[in-house]
Structures are given as structure tokens and as C-alpha cells.
């Protein structure tokens, strides 16, 4: 039987400062954007009243823009907005790939990039693309905000570094001309399903060599992870099918997946290799390379 939703107050501050003041002063606060992850959990919270702070009216938190060689993403930017953004398609094709397959049309219209990151699922599709693009997260509170590397943002499954009085105020990453990236995932059906495993690769080209390469993996550890040991092994080397195989095999070693209802650890480990290969080839091609 469906349980009734818990009682809550929905507060809709029009400014970021207003939201942060509410976060600091009220009890049991929870920021909400699209609500696609939070609302289903209400059924498990019993009747505990919650102050939901809706960030949807705060204009400065929404949108995609380029400034001083960096792409800035507002946390309430929806997956549909990302999918429609030419800027993202060109500067971060892996993020554009990921947005295409997150949830369903309805979820992509409601769900936001900030929400996807703050939900901190190991399988979050937007995390690996942002990790490989060297993204940083802006931690906001009534005190002065600060930027941290995105990989430090995740603490564990459903856990982030955010304190009670803080919200994720923005995401930024460098816009690099000529770079390519790709995101690959395996779901259990074509759409509207959590990733069993996912991966993203970022590549910069120097002729036939990989000037820079970054790899991120999802759903193979308690948080989305980078694979620096593999990156260091292949950075600067001449791109080849053998290098792709080598990187894929090494990523299989980095992954520490578990068995769960969505798939076995063995399957996930094997698929990390397949997805890294596919992503690496595509990132290379998108960077203008041939293989």
C-alpha cells in the first residue's frame, strides 16, 4: 500500500542568501530542486516534519555559461537544459551523452545536475563526465564560499561533504579547445534505468599522442571514482588500439564493484573494460584523432 507523504513546509526563497539563512536557522531543513530523488524518500521518513527549501526561484543558480575559459553550471540546471545546450555539447560531450540517458523525459525535465550530484549515488550518470572534465564544486554557506575538486565532494553512497548549513552553489570546469570526451553506460533496458556501470574518458591530443587523459568510473566503488594510476600510465603515449586495451585492462583492476540486484561484481568489472575502451576511442575521435 502507498504510504502517505510526510508533512513538510515548502519554502521558496527568491535569493541565494535567503535560502542560506533558512538553512542556517531552521531545524530539519533540506534543499530541494527537481525533487526526483528526494520525494520518493519521503515515504520512508515517517511523519517527521521537514523544511524543504526550494531552490527553483533563485535565478543565479540556473543555467549554463562560459566565463574566463571556464564553463559554469548552475546546480538547478535540468538535464533537459544540458541536453539542449550547444555549449555543453561542444565543451563537454561526455556530459551531453550522460544527460541523454538520465531517467526518462519527465525526469530529465525535472531533475537537475546539482541534485544528481548531491544525491551522491555511486551510479550517478553526471558524475563521471564532470570528474574527467576536472570539475570543481562550489560550497556555499553564509560564510565565504569555496571551490573544491568534485572528487572530494563525494564521501560515500548518498553522502557528500556538505554540512547542514551548506548548499552546492555551482559547478565549473575548464573549456579546452580541441579536447574530446565520451560517456558510456550499461543499463538494464534502453532508458529510464540506473546504470549498472558507467564510465567517462577525456582526451587531449598532441598529434598522435594523448597529451592529457582522464578516466572516471561509476557504480564500481562507494562513490564515482577517477582512475589516476591508469591515467598516469598512459598519459603522453602514442594512441593505439593496444593502448586502449592496456587502459581498459588496468581500469578493470582499479574497479572494486560489488554484487547487487542490478548486476554481479564480475560483470561490472568486465564491463568497466568494455566501456573504457568505447569511451576512449570516442573521446579520441571527438578530439579529432583517428584510430
Amino acid at each position: 500500500m502507498l504510504k502517505p507523504l510526510t508533512g513538510f513546509d515548502l519554502l521558496r526563497p527568491p535569493t541565494l542568501v535567503g535560502a542560506l539563512e533558512m538553512m542556517s536557522t531552521l531545524d530539519s531543513t533540506m534543499p530541494i530542486a527537481g525533487g526526483t530523488d528526494i520525494v520518493p524518500t519521503f515515504k520512508d521518513l515517517g511523519s517527521k516534519p521537514v523544511h524543504l527549501i526550494d531552490l527553483g526561484l533563485i535565478e543565479e543558480l540556473n543555467g549554463v555559461m562560459e566565463e574566463d575559459g571556464k564553463i559554469l553550471l548552475g546546480p538547478t540546471t535540468t538535464h533537459a537544459q544540458i541536453l539542449a545546450s550547444k555549449l555543453i555539447e561542444e565543451a563537454a560531450p561526455a556530459l551531453h551523452d550522460a544527460a541523454r540517458w538520465i531517467g526518462s523525459v519527465q525526469i530529465r525535465n525535472r531533475g537537475t545536475i546539482g541534485g544528481n550530484l548531491c544525491n551522491a549515488s555511486p551510479a550517478a550518470d553526471s558524475a563521471p563526465p564532470l570528474l574527467v572534465h576536472g570539475a570543481e564544486a562550489h560550497i556555499c554557506s553564509l560564510e565565504e564560499g569555496h571551490w573544491i575538486p568534485l572528487q572530494e565532494f563525494f564521501k560515500g553512497p548518498k553522502m557528500t561533504v556538505l554540512e547542514k548549513n551548506e548548499i552546492l552553489g555551482g559547478i565549473r570546469f575548464p573549456s579546452v579547445k580541441g579536447a574530446g570526451s565520451s560517456f558510456q553506460r550499461i543499463g538494464r533496458r534502453k532508458g529510464f534505468t540506473l546504470s549498472v556501470v558507467n564510465a567517462a574518458v577525456y582526451a587531449e591530443r598532441d598529434g598522435e599522442a594523448l597529451r592529457e587523459v582522464r578516466i572516471a568510473l561509476g557504480s564500481v566503488a562507494p562513490t564515482p571514482i577517477r582512475a589516476p594510476s591508469v591515467e598516469n600510465k598512459i598519459r603522453g603515449r602514442k594512441m593505439s588500439e593496444e593502448l586502449v586495451e592496456e587502459a581498459a585492462a588496468a581500469c578493470g583492476e582499479v574497479a572494486k564493484p560489488i554484487d547487487d540486484v542490478r548486476g554481479t561484481a564480475e560483470y561490472r568489472r568486465d564491463m568497466v573494460g568494455v566501456l573504457v575502451k568505447r569511451a576512449m576511442r570516442e573521446a579520441w575521435r571527438r578530439a579529432g584523432g583517428e584510430l
Binding site: 526518462s104 538494464r188 533496458r189 534502453k190 532508458g191 529510464f192 534505468t193 540506473l194 540486484v261 542490478r262
Partner: peptide
């Protein structure tokens, strides 16, 4: 794929018990 652990169903919702969608 209805999955059980010690006799308890672990695929308790349509998030985990996957059925075909229109795309499939």
C-alpha cells in the same frame, strides 16, 4: 528477474525489478 535473499524479495520496486519500457 525476481530476486530473493534468505527468502526475502530484494527487488521490491520497479527501480530494481526492471520491466520493458516503450523504448524496448
Amino acid at each position: 528477474n525476481l530476486q530473493l535473499k534468505n527468502g526475502v524479495v530484494t527487488t521490491t520496486g520497479f527501480k530494481d525489478y526492471v520491466i520493458p519500457s516503450a523504448l524496448d
